[in-house]
Design a protein around this nucleic acid. Structure first.
Ligand code: ZN
Ligand code: ZN
Ligand code: ZN
Ligand code: ZN
Lengths: 152, 152
DNA sequence: GCAAATTCGTTACGCTATAACGTCTCTTAG
DNA sequence: CTAAGAGACGTTATAGCGTAACGAATTTGC
């Protein structure tokens, strides 16, 4: 993601927050920027280390609070099977997302497929469950790493 | 699960292991039994504490190695969003499973739906990914807790 | 028996996440 | 303007999850 694109994404995040009466504070904004600039899902303690380089010693809560805020507003998602965080470019729209993750290089792509969401909801309802949140992640090899695998 | 049912499950696990040339050692067997007897997904450190009551101080690796073995043979599954382990009564058959989990009481049910597995695989393949492992979990409220929620 | 492989105990450590408390700032009603 | 309340943040401590590395003991295959 280019710096331009990052700026655009940050501006859009700012708009979303303002619209919702939420405050995109410096810490939150900076954490989002770090996630946006990373080309892969970012771990909480990596974010913490980077933020501490800039602001001196902090603690985990500082990061986790920022992450909780960004998650609540769908500005980021958590990849559960990686314990890592990725930016979402579709925060305006409430949505469930899925992920495909490369076991080899960590490349991660967000998917938004309404059919699979509906399917899982239906499976839950068939058992009497009221489904509120879904975690759907596929782990395997990305196109680039598949090639490497074949040659090795 | 009654003691009788636990014994039957353990006997079946023993058969599966023998058939595969794997050893269901005392530690592994006991860990499986603890998981079978629990009526809810069990956490690694809870298992560790119980095992240490019986055998004196051990360390996390003892439990995690047993869990890894049981996972490899599909005698148990890991519920990723709970960091907990549940027994599987269908170890003979290679299968992917999904889970519905109650946020309120922790009740967890295993689902085996081939269609949703195929769907997610297809979504991955459309992006060039070779999907090897899937995590599909739905969190919400179980039938019992839905009632409680409505009355509260 | 004996060598190789598997299993297990043990110590130590790293990563993930939250509890609890006090301070500071920002908003807003009076 | 100012006091009160809410929200955000810094700080310390701690709980929970998981693995690396090494050596001893056991089992297996020859
Ligand atoms: Zn998204
Ligand atoms: Zn890859
Ligand atoms: Zn199963
Ligand atoms: Zn429930």
């Amino acid at each position: 993601m280019t710096s331009q694109q990052v700026e655009i994404a940050l501006a859009r995040a700012q708009r979303v927050c303002t619209l919702r009466g939420a405050r995109l504070t410096p810490v939150r904004r900076r954490v989002l920027e770090l996630i946006l600039r990373a080309d892969q899902p970012t771990k909480a303690y990596v974010l913490l280390a980077k933020l501490e380089q800039e602001r001196g010693k902090l603690g985990p809560p500082t990061i986790y609070r920022a992450l909780d805020f960004l998650l609540a507003h769908q500005l980021i998602h958590k990849v559960e099977t990686s314990n890592a965080f990725v930016a979402c470019d579709d925060a305006e729209r409430a949505h469930q997302s899925q992920f495909v993750i490369c076991e080899d290089c960590g490349a991660t792509e967000e998917i938004q497929d309404d059919d699979i969401v509906a399917s899982l909801r239906r499976l839950g309802e068939m058992r009497g469950f009221a489904v509120e949140r879904q975690v759907i992640e596929a782990r395997g090899l990305c196109p680039a790493c598949r090639v490497g695998q074949r040659q090795a």
